[in-house]
């Protein structure tokens, strides 16, 4: 994985903000009493299985994949909401996993998360003022009530919830999905974070609201020099938003590179199949040949040997069953983990 760390992205001199190295997040599954007594190996859900990647300052990096591929777990583990089994996470050079309490709090200011469900993510018993106020109070950003009020007003304007007076005393159940997501973004923005991890922030919103929030996120990146780690299953959204994409399958990154390259010239058979089956909202475009994979995604407790995609891969060879492919730089900036390239 040192290949990934040392190589620089073509055309960009920015510093690396986030570096994930050999990350593993395994959950143990409690099997029955007797099974635990008599069997030697426990069953593990290998949600994130040896993942390495880096995100540069100012870029939007998407983690894309179908449900169950581990992308959400990866995001949560970077935010230290889920325990990491092994591996390293570096934020601005510091090791996130070994922070002391004081520095952990500072990290929690610099790295913020937006969640998928705008209905569940906001505390139902607090008003918008309180919700955003929490960020302010926990990190002591204001010393007087008036200062706090000013900060809240300003950030509500930044996320285009205007007139702010209308929203200050509202409860989350009085807001629409898009408005709630804006409040979530506001409560993250007020801390002036460096990194925002967004976990499917628009998939539970209405179609016309999605574009609003996506465009807002783009504008905020310009305005506040933000960096996004964007987690999604929707490849069309990933294409719209991101500078670079990593495709995940069953806990591993199988392909990673600049968005244009991944979308137009995918190299990994899984990526190729995925790109070919995404429905396109345009009946005029010719449909390319669809690569429809047979079977289902294997269970994360029983990951296939060798290359984990070999059970469904149209190019699978004997070697693929035996050895897990390493990530190699097939083209400048374009990384693939496959024996058949």
């Amino acid at each position: 994985m040192s290949l990934v760390m040392q190589s620089s992205q073509p055309g960009s001199n920015s510093e690396r903000l986030l570096q994930v190295k050999d990350l593993k997040v395994y959950f143990s599954v409690e099997t029955g009493f007797f099974a635990k007594l008599f069997s030697k190996a426990s069953t593990y859900v290998r949600a994130v299985d040896n993942v390495s990647f880096g995100v540069d300052k100012g870029e939007i990096f998407s983690l894309a994949g179908e449900s169950g591929c581990g992308k959400t777990t990866l995001g949560m583990s970077i935010m230290r909401l889920v325990e990491v089994t092994s591996g390293k996470i570096y934020f601005n050079g510091t090791d996130v996993l070994s922070l002391n309490r004081k520095n952990l709090k500072k990290f929690r200011r610099d790295a913020q998360m937006i969640f998928q469900d705008p209905y569940e993510a906001l505390p139902p018993h607090l008003t918008v003022f309180d919700i955003i106020g929490e960020s302010i109070d926990v990190h002591k950003l204001a010393s007087t009530y008036d200062e706090k009020m000013d900060l809240v007003y300003k950030v509500l304007e930044d996320v285009r919830l205007i007139p702010a007076e209308r929203f200050i005393d509202a409860y989350s159940h009085q807001l629409s999905g898009g408005q709630r997501q804006r409040v979530a973004i506001a409560s993250a923005l007020v801390l002036k974070p460096k990194l925002i991890v967004a976990d499917e922030p628009v998939s539970m919103l209405d179609v016309s609201v999605r574009s609003e929030i996506l465009n807002l996120m783009l504008e905020l990146r310009e305005q506040f020099k933000l960096t996004y780690l964007f987690i999604t299953h929707d490849l069309a959204v990933a294409r719209y938003l991101s500078d670079r994409i990593a495709i995940m399958y069953l806990g591993k990154i199988v392909e990673m590179g600049r968005t244009k390259g991944i979308i137009e010239t995918p190299l990994h058979p899984y990526t190729k199949a995925l790109m070919s089956v995404v429905p396109v909202p345009d009946p005029f475009i010719d449909r390319e040949k669809r690569i429809i994979l047979s079977g289902e995604v294997p269970s994360a407790t029983n990951i296939p040997s060798g290359c984990r995609f070999h059970t469904r891969c149209p190019l699978a060879k004997e070697n693929c069953r035996k050895m897990e492919p390493e990530m190699v730089e097939a083209e400048p900036g374009h990384y693939v983990a496959c024996w058949c390239i």
Binding site: L81, K105, R109, M113, F115, A121, L122, P123, V138
Partner: peptide
Amino acid sequence: ERLFVQRARSLGCSDRRILGKYILQG
């Protein structure tokens, strides 16, 4: 286990704050 408690944790809220403001108040 609810999402807004996870979110509070990700903001940097201490356990005591979460207990008091997010759980007890609710």
